[in-house]
Design a protein around this nucleic acid. Sequence first.
DNA 1: TTTCGTATACATGTATACATAAATCAGGAC
DNA 2: GTCCTGATTTATGTATACATGTATACGAAA
Lengths: 206, 206
Amino acid sequence: MTAPQIATTLRADILAGRITPGEALQQEDLAARFGVSRIPVRDALQQLAAARLVEVVPGRGARVVRLTRDELAEVFELRRLLECNALRRATTRAKAADHEAVDHARQQSDLEAGRPGWQAGDWAFHAALYAAANHPRQIAMIAELRDTCQMHIAAYDRLSDDTPRWLADHQAISAAFCAGDADAAASRLAKHIMAARDRLLTLLAD
Amino acid sequence: MTAPQIATTLRADILAGRITPGEALQQEDLAARFGVSRIPVRDALQQLAAARLVEVVPGRGARVVRLTRDELAEVFELRRLLECNALRRATTRAKAADHEAVDHARQQSDLEAGRPGWQAGDWAFHAALYAAANHPRQIAMIAELRDTCQMHIAAYDRLSDDTPRWLADHQAISAAFCAGDADAAASRLAKHIMAARDRLLTLLAD
DNA sequence: TTTCGTATACATGTATACATAAATCAGGAC
DNA sequence: GTCCTGATTTATGTATACATGTATACGAAA
């Protein structure tokens, strides 16, 4: 097990909720788990810190990031800002090939909906939506924010099943995108994101 | 010299242009410079990678990030999006104390204008503008984008001196902010950022 | 001349061992 | 019973040494 592999594995564990927000990540434990020394573990933890999935306090070790309600609300606000902007930009620039790619990704995500690992298909659809914006750094920032959300969703919201509504949202966004209607697409997407926010925040009330 | 101190020192070197974009950062050289082993140097480099100031390629070492024109244009676009949004939000929420803080920061940055280290005062002014938005993560993202820009400005644009125009911009933004006019403030700020973009991109044409 | 393969040098990646700082807990004073 | 103090335990931080991988230079073949 090399450092990047360890980072990838831990990242998957965090996003799937197998390691929950707030949990301490001790170097020796992880070293024993992966059968390596602490050095590559330290590297992996730093890489995860770069992705804002864990926070390392010098001298006090690493913990999985755990956001408060306010912080999560801010993250969703930023997602709305960045994702709607990316979608507007992409919609006005999209060619026929982009429309096809989006439609294909949407159908693919439909098939995976509800099944374990559906998040990958969901992200593939959104990534296809934003691809035509040609703003790779913006997409990377969006992905980071989404990961932060999914981490908490996986921890607190294992049983949610709004898939019908999600599919309808995707349908509407996709249609507006292919029609070149940036305003409609952005408006639908904003509602989509705000719905996700409300679902998580109400569940967090417990 | 401890790892965080090394990271801080290198960060300052990069932002000041003493280490330029594209430059390779070899672990042994840095270890010798700071009188430590390579381990804390590795840590420091990973921390800088988290701040997007350097990029580490596994097996091939670390380099200072060097953005293309297109990538820099995207960064300025993102700054406009995030900074204008933060300013709008802050303007509508600001209390008298926030107005005072902004005005104080502006006067302070006026004094430092043109002198070495003026960037700190400039950022203090902008940070004061966005503080009332109460969105710490958004401010952190903005700071990261600004650092990316400053890194390149310091490398290619040592001699620029638009201070009169900058001061006028700050004056106008500050006035709109204190008047509670979010539209005017955001509009002025957008021009301010786009001017910075144009200056850097034209200089990069060489 | 160009291109591929190989050998050498060099930088990075990791393991082990030690140093240091933080957290924990026992003991005692108030 | 509570709080402070100090020793013990534990985990993190760093140095050294070795292993692994990559880049470069040289030479041979097409």
